[in-house]
Design a protein around this nucleic acid. Structure first.
Lengths: 227, 227
DNA sequence: CGACACAAGATTGTATACAATCTCGTGTGC
DNA sequence: GCACACGAGATTGTATACAATCTTGTGTCG
């Protein structure tokens, strides 16, 4: 892919796999056979193992000793925990971001939202979801908090899995509006409004999930599909 | 070490190295040669690499392509970011913990504080610091938030490095008192007080650091000492 | 005398081979 | 007919070997 800019190789594969999960091309519970993945990407098991280990640390993959790697299946409890963490981190960070956002940042966020719209319009729901996650990470970056941005990144990744498992289709395109409102608040440098909007946005997301009694979808079937 | 309870091997080494960093036996900037570490623990480079990769993800180790692994040297900026993240996560979590703490939890925390005192009295400052970090993680666990506990764990690890780099010796044993006050608030199920105490505790920690103009300590010298 | 170029040594990145463990189908006994 | 035990196949865990890259010391040129 990038023959000139040498990239860490295992990171490349980790990104590819992560993207597949984000775009819901890899379903939760899918088994990730090392030989298979190695063959697909034309590398050895060594780098695949490194990539899987990294994804495991991000919560995207569950590693079971002598059993292999599976795309994680967050439990209802996990889902609540993830959104609890996001509720602690993101609203305040959105406030900071609004207080120090630059014109260039605003332009970038604007482009981002447009891409999101385009993907949604093109029926690429998976890609739209992925971009929607990136939006949240961008905000943490604008707040100049790389550490928090990294955490938000992990939480977004798990949120993607959670949405794949527990999303109830009722409400369709809540994202775009919420993100647009956030952008407005940031453009006005209104930190307090940005914080409130983010809090509400996360709450909307959480309540749009069906976390009552979902027994994790049949694994074996999904495994069969995945292989 | 544990011949009966089979543990993941690379995790074991990661823990050993992490402990060494926590207890300030491995100084920031120290180079971690793969062959050397492999020889010390009597395993192959394969598991050492896995361990180093994990530690890198936790922010304890910096991995530079074709250069090797070094114990991380958080910058002043990193230090501020870490404490910013802790300020967002820990106070609210302390409140939750206080609201749902059980008698068994309180007893465990009490024992923990006693160990901390004992280590401090025995002149084992490193171990005391390590236990002090564990205390914070325990609180997140009591709040029943494994996800947040994992984040706090990463932040504690980096905090240990930050303290090693930027701690100014003025104030000596602030920890014990602060933790004791927190325990009291939790025993009284006073969530609001626990939250305030934690916020103050973190602020104390941050202000006890000298984050003005420290140019990261000479790396080359430490490398020489480390090898 | 200083600076640059080059080569030998050392270190990391990757692939392959072997060992340990698990899965699952088959067979036997009850 | 059902349950349990066993073994072949498959998969992961670990070690070793080789390739690519960097470091460092030496030598030569300006």
């Amino acid at each position: 892919m990038d023959p000139i800019l040498k990239e860490p190789a295992s990171d490349h594969i980790a990104s590819r796999l992560a993207l597949a999960v984000h775009e819901h091309r890899l379903a939760p519970g899918t088994k990730l056979n090392e030989d298979e993945v190695a063959d697909v990407y034309g590398v050895s098991r060594t780098v695949v193992r490194a990539a899987l280990q990294r994804l495991s640390h991000d919560g995207l993959v569950e590693l079971r000793r002598n059993r292999g790697a599976f795309v994680a299946q967050p439990s209802i409890r996990d889902a609540r925990e993830v959104f609890e963490a996001r509720a602690l981190l993101e609203p305040r960070t959105a406030r900071s971001a609004a207080e120090r956002v630059t014109a260039a940042d605003l332009a970038a966020l604007n482009r981002h939202i447009e891409e999101e719209h385009a993907a949604l319009a093109a029926g690429e729901g998976g890609r739209a979801l992925y971009l929607s996650g990136l939006f949240h990470i961008e905000i943490a970056r604008i707040a100049d908090q790389e550490t928090i941005a990294a955490f938000v990144g992990q939480l977004i990744a798990r949120s993607s899995l959670i949405i794949a498992l527990y999303w109830q289709r009722r409400t369709a395109l809540c994202e775009s509006n919420a993100h647009h409102a956030l952008l407005d608040a940031m453009a006005a440098r209104d930190g307090e409004r940005a914080e409130d909007l983010m809090r509400g946005h996360l709450l909307d997301l959480l309540t749009s999930l069906d976390l009552r009694n979902t027994p994790a979808p049949a694994r074996s079937l999904r495994e069969a599909l995945g292989s």
